[in-house]
Structures are given as structure tokens and as C-alpha cells.
């Protein structure tokens, strides 16, 4: 119960990531719901990067590259699912919804785009290291 019992704990008392995770989450949500493409992509990148960072910091991952790529794949799948929901099941004409995106497809593409960037960064980093 003494102060000393607390200060000798082997865990850090500071981390730069929580504030950026919160900011990334807020920007991503704002961008996706209100429909600001750039804000959505930027927010998701910040969120993905910060989550990867905090995972490494807390020892759940040994480097940032794998978590980055993993989150990228997850975002990509989510975005693709959102886009796919708008494809006409009769014609399966995916190209037409992508070339002329409606509100939902545009949001889906933002999520796919940020996922692709995260995967690219993760894979590049992994290969270069």
C-alpha cells in the first residue's frame, strides 16, 4: 500500500499511443459517416498505425509491420463487403458501382483504400527489415 509499492511496478507510466488511437477513431468515424473521403482514409491510417504501435509497445507484437498489414487486410475486407453490398446481384457488375460510386460505395472505397495503404506499408516494412 505504500507509494513505493506502486512505483516499483515494472510497467510504463506513459504511452504516446492512446491519444492518437482516440483521434484516429474519431476522425475515421467522422469521415465515414459524414462522407469526407480524405478524413476517413486519414483517420483509419492514424488508427491502424497507432494500434500497431500500442501492440508493439505493450509486447503483444514484436514489430509494427505484421499488425499493420493485418489491420490493413481487416479494413480491406470490411470495405469490400460494404462495396459488394451495393453490387446488383443480377448482373454482378462491380465495375459500374465503382466507377460511379453512390454514398455507400464511396465510403466502402475509402475503407478499402486505407486498408490497401496499410497492407502496402506493412509488407514493404516487413520485406525491408
Amino acid at each position: 500500500m505504500s507509494e513505493q509499492a506502486k512505483v516499483t511496478g515494472d510497467f510504463r507510466r506513459a504511452s504516446p499511443w492512446p491519444v492518437f488511437i482516440a483521434l484516429g477513431f474519431a476522425l475515421a468515424e467522422l469521415g465515414i459517416f459524414v462522407g469526407y473521403f480524405a478524413v476517413a482514409v486519414g483517420g483509419l491510417l492514424l488508427l491502424g498505425g497507432s494500434v500497431a504501435g500500442i501492440l508493439v509497445e505493450s509486447g503483444y507484437a514484436s514489430s509494427v509491420w505484421r499488425p499493420l498489414a493485418g489491420l490493413g487486410i481487416a479494413f480491406g475486407l470490411l470495405g469490400v463487403a460494404l462495396v459488394a453490398s451495393q453490387v446488383d446481384p443480377a448482373t454482378l457488375d462491380a465495375l459500374s458501382v465503382v466507377t460511379d460510386p453512390n454514398g455507400i460505395v464511396g465510403r466502402g472505397l475509402a475503407i478499402v483504400g486505407s486498408g490497401a495503404i496499410l497492407v502496402a506499408v506493412g509488407v514493404t516494412g516487413f520485406l525491408l527489415e
Binding site: 507510466r13 492512446p18 491519444v19 505493450s58
Partner: peptide
């Protein structure tokens, strides 16, 4: 010593 998840605690505040 602290909350069970100190970093999640900080994320919760910064939201």
C-alpha cells in the same frame, strides 16, 4: 497498483 488496463484507460479518456 493501477487500473487493470492502463492504456485502455487513457484511450477511454482521450475519446
Amino acid at each position: 497498483d493501477d487500473m487493470a488496463f492502463p492504456r485502455i484507460n487513457a484511450i477511454a479518456f482521450w475519446l
